[in-house]
Design a protein around this nucleic acid. Sequence first.
RNA 1: GAAGUAAAUCGCCUUAUCGCUGUUUCGAUUUAUCGAGAUGGAGGAAAGUCCGAACACCAUAGUGCAACAUAGUGGUUAGCAGCCACCAGCCGAGAGGUUAGGAAAAGUGCAACAGAAAGUAUGUACAGGUAAUGCUGUAGUGAAACCAGGUAAACUCUAUGUGGUGCAAUGUCAUGUAAACUAACACUUGAGGGCUGCACGCUCGAUGUUAGAGGGUAGACAGCUAAAGUGUAUUGGUAACAAUGCAUUCAGAUAAAUGAUAAGGGCUCCUUGGAGUACAAAAUUCGGCUUAUAGAUUUACUUAGAAA
Length: 128
Amino acid sequence: MKTLSKTYSKKEKLKSKKLIDALFTHGQSVSTFPLRLVYLPTDFKEDIIAKTSVSVSKRNFKSAVDRNRIKRLLREAYRLNKSVYFNNITTQYAFMILYIGKDKPSFVEVETKMNTLFEKFLNKTSKS
RNA sequence: GAAGUAAAUCGCCUUAUCGCUGUUUCGAUUUAUCGAGAUGGAGGAAAGUCCGAACACCAUAGUGCAACAUAGUGGUUAGCAGCCACCAGCCGAGAGGUUAGGAAAAGUGCAACAGAAAGUAUGUACAGGUAAUGCUGUAGUGAAACCAGGUAAACUCUAUGUGGUGCAAUGUCAUGUAAACUAACACUUGAGGGCUGCACGCUCGAUGUUAGAGGGUAGACAGCUAAAGUGUAUUGGUAACAAUGCAUUCAGAUAAAUGAUAAGGGCUCCUUGGAGUACAAAAUUCGGCUUAUAGAUUUACUUAGAAA
């Protein structure tokens, strides 16, 4: 298996509305405040491990600028660290990362939380 | 210089590493993907969605009523409720600011305080007059007292204008099994639907046969960015603006790109190190308006009082 690069291109984004609906109705979740990960094992035609999307509630952040900023931080933290998370995984997954906090975070906070979040996820999936 | 008035402009920068997205060139092959290079990638308000248009569809947009909008005069424009000039009212010492600035002799309504009373009222004092009576005058209140006036961001009247729905419009393609849709023919003369809030009017229309064809998949492509473009100069015009010449191509994403991190530098404030660096992110496209904005710059003009 080739090592994953630090890219996050169109293919790796979760886009289909159908899939997102399925994710929220059938998916399971783990959370580490202020993050929550919803996941569902899925089959893709493309040769990738995961399709991922991020979301920030409009209720907690009224300004579009703030929402954009947080989404970019989430994406960046995911992009830089996903090669670590997916080294030993063979199943394909759909992911949705939600930001459920109410304060604007810094990048370091997001990154450490993201790491603990995916550790939790790996523990949970390997047990079952 | 200080205080102010008006107009205009800018609204953080650089480097490194790792990324996102459009276009294009080259090279691979699995023929729609990958790799490499080049190059473009948020705003002055992109915002609110308040006006005006372009564009698309619905009867090429019908008639009447209702409803809504506008309101000094002239100009400007594709158009506007915008903008410019002038006049008038009001505010300011001034530079200037500001105004829903048509009509009160068509009618209805409303009116603080004062006052007996703002109209189906006539009190008090004095005077006059009568058979008798607010019958008449004066005083008093008030902006206004059977004589009218004020108010139309009150109804109303006048003049002018307005069809509806919005790019999730709309068109094409792929997939392709219906009772939904389309066309033709036949039969029903009318339940119901569409066109605007209502009425008229127009139109489709229950069933059967044949043919086409599809619900869903918020699939793909077009619409989608070269335009009432932008910059600049000259000419005309008090100005808004117009004409002409030259130069230039400047985001097109779609659960939605335009970034993240690190280092350094600007600028502002307190003091030797910190803090702050606003408001706010395209979503079919333009022209306006309104609102939010840390801070910085330029130009023109004014200065009564106070201080020097």
